[in-house]
Write a protein that binds this DNA or RNA. Structure first.
Lengths: 226, 226
DNA sequence: GTATTATTAGAGTATATACTCTAGTGAGTC
DNA sequence: GACTCACTAGAGTATATACTCTAATAATAC
């Protein structure tokens, strides 16, 4: 494997684990047992590394959110979208954590991320549209669909941050993909009122699979969310 | 005004303006034209300053979200809650930006914030309950109400971050309270399906007041969100 | 083989950051 | 006037951070 790719991989790993803010270029080099000079031969600076990682992330999500226009949408499709998006979120979970700082430090990234967001919002909206065409949810006016899509986006992209803050644990390290996917429960909650009678039960059953474990899985809390 | 209070005020101002990450204790001292030594006489460290600011924020929101149990809830109450919460969010807007890092650096803050979140969730849920009692929304099972409250919380606390990333502008400085309050539109979107016929129109009219300005207020974007 | 190019090591640098230490100052008290 | 004590100045420090520079080595081209 090329050094350049190793740097990207190692950076992603460290960023996800400790947060971008807590990972320096020296850490990355040390982690790979290469010199800082070597790292800077391959990347002009830290922002460049992050930007390249974003491009990967973007490509992955764009791939996941590709919507087949030649056939109707099924419940399985919807499940796949949700599962995939949360998988992507998990793999690049450092990204949304320090998003604002990252965008402030790199104008390219700001612009690209903005476009990326708009593409995602359009995809979510299109998914709703096709779910309606398939008779899974009731059709909605475009206005409402846009606002709903935006809410879905907000829930999806910030579910992880919420989980991390809700955790009483000292380090926010202990967070699993399974927990993350409880975000699907939250997203499906948004859809409930719009489900058609024909699909209502099936979607509710699907949602049930992602229901968060009850409090008590952790010894520390009296609160609703441990 | 006492130096200690001036430090808190100045810190909050700088944090909100530039982000906590970009503000050092030296900046704060310089901003007040006092010495770093002076600052450290009043606060043990940066975390302490942030913690005190959080206590203020917490107090403010707790005050806003106090729910009168001796009378029915009105639409005006709901409007007040929404307006107030977004006002609070605005005044302490630095806080949610670097939340994860802040919680990782201060265990006191982590614990307190967790409790704070749970209190807020409980309040939101109680508001829904009372809105149902008042015949404004249809009553819901507790399960659903909790999940909905959590979605409301996610939308509220992350609306600002979304706006900042959606802005194409170089610096995310240009963000107004008015724009922020478009988050109310998003929150009310969540309530739409649950509105009773008696109140539907009135709430929809209220929501309309917060509708985001159409794209075109900014020259840079082709996307849905500027 | 020689020239060229890609890659790497590793020491080094300028700057920043959080924080400390010492030496006070000024307002009140007895 | 001596004393206290909350408060302040400002130089200083240890460490970290992003990044640079030089020189060397490995790979490839001719």
């Amino acid at each position: 494997m090329k050094t350049r790719d190793k740097i990207l991989l190692s950076s992603l790993e460290l960023f996800n684990e400790r947060g971008e803010r807590n990972v320096t270029t020296n850490h990355i080099a040390a982690n790979l047992a290469i010199s800082p000079g070597n790292l800077y031969y391959h990347f002009r600076n830290k922002s460049d590394i992050i930007y390249e990682i974003f491009l990967e992330y973007e490509k992955l999500v764009d791939f996941y959110l590709d919507i087949p226009e030649d056939r109707a949408m099924t419940l399985d499709d919807m499940t796949f979208y949700l599962e995939s998006v949360f998988d992507g979120l998990w793999s690049y979970r450092f990204f949304h954590r320090d998003l604002e700082y990252l965008l402030d430090s790199d104008q390219r990234l700001r612009q690209d991320y903005r476009d990326f967001t708009n593409r995602c919002l359009a995809s979510i909206s299109r998914i709703f549209e096709k779910l309606a065409e398939a008779g899974i949810i009731e059709p909605q006016e475009e206005d409402l669909r846009s606002a709903m899509s935006l809410n879905v986006w907000l829930v999806i992209t910030n579910w992880m941050a919420f989980l991390k803050t809700a955790h009483a644990a000292e380090e926010s390290a202990c967070l699993t993909l399974t927990e993350l996917k409880q975000g699907i429960y939250q997203v499906l909650t948004l859809e409930i009122p719009y489900l058609t009678p024909a699909y209502r039960e099936r979607v509710m059953a699907l949602r049930e699979k992602y229901r968060p474990a009850l409090p008590g899985n952790d010894s520390s809390g009296a609160g609703a969310y441990t």
